[in-house]
């Protein structure tokens, strides 16, 4: 094997950077969509909304039992067909790989975040609800101002851990021919033949991003432990 030549990385950096940006953008978008939908899903189950509660539960069970890569395929091939049927003329409506990725990751993450939040909701002390009732707070304000902020705070380390996994999973978009960080590296590696350097560098970047996030998880846990220490 040739000796390692990392100068190649400097040349490749702009392309890798754009791949990293795509990974981060996808993570951020999936996080936002997933948290909003996940919170809604958790609340629907928490309030035991008649039909919607069952639907959401079935959806979550389904999503959590199949691999993400399969969900990506489904969305990429099925959603255009469904849209075609809905629009009436029966011809598939392509929604594009990027949109597919953003929507799929968001919907996929929603199932995971929703489970975290649902468990968090159950962990809130009954006294908190009673205090809200005694103060005549509406159900909306009870959840918006008292219950959900506490759930999100308690669950933030787990949510962040899940998001780190999400960040790593964004590499699956290669099946949609999208170029994320890993995709950028492997394309370059095939062009310049410097596989070892390229894969080492992306591994370091993944390591850097994930361990920075892990540091955040640790400090969140610590802060929460300290806040809880007095009671």
């Amino acid at each position: 094997m040739n000796s390692l030549d990392f100068s190649i990385v400097a040349q490749a950096w702009p392309y890798l950077w754009s791949g990293l940006l795509f990974s981060l953008a996808l993570t951020a978008a999936a996080f936002v969509i997933g948290m909003i939908l996940g919170t809604l899903f958790a609340l629907v189950q928490h309030f035991e909304v008649p039909v919607a509660g069952r639907l959401v539960r079935a959806y979550i069970a389904l999503i959590r039992s199949i691999p993400l890569i399969l969900v990506l395929f489904w969305f990429f091939f099925l959603v255009p067909i469904v849209l075609g049927h809905l629009s009436g003329n029966g011809r598939p409506v392509p929604i594009g790989a990027t949109w597919t990725a953003f929507i799929t990751f968001g919907l996929f993450e929603a199932a995971y975040y929703s489970e975290i939040i649902r468990v968090g909701l159950r962990a809130v002390n009954r006294g908190q609800f009673e205090a809200c009732q005694a103060l005549a707070l509406s159900t909306f304000h009870t959840y918006r101002c008292v219950i959900l902020p506490q759930v999100l705070r308690v669950a933030s380390p787990i949510i962040l851990s899940q998001t780190i996994i999400l960040f790593q999973d964004t590499s699956l978009v290669y099946v949609l021919s999208l170029t994320d960080l890993l995709g950028a590296a492997s394309k370059l590696a095939q062009l310049n033949g410097r596989l070892v350097e390229m894969y080492l560098v992306v591994a370091l970047v993944y390591l850097g991003v994930s361990s920075a996030a892990s540091q955040c998880v640790a400090s969140l846990r610590k802060r929460y432990a300290m806040a809880g220490a007095h009671r």
């Binding site: 002390n125 006294g127 908190q128 009673e130 205090a131 005694a134 103060l135 005549a136 707070l137 509406s138 304000h141 101002c145 008292v146 902020p149 506490q150 705070r153 806040a227 809880g228 009671r231």
Partner: peptide
């Protein structure tokens, strides 16, 4: 009707003054 509980039931994520401000603002 105000109520005081045995176990306080303060809102742990809000400061003392915010605990006192929430209901007057929202209700």
């Amino acid at each position: 009707v105000g109520m005081v509980f045995q176990s306080f039931n303060l809102f742990p994520h809000l400061s003392i003054v915010e605990n006192c401000m929430l209901a007057p603002m929202k209700v």
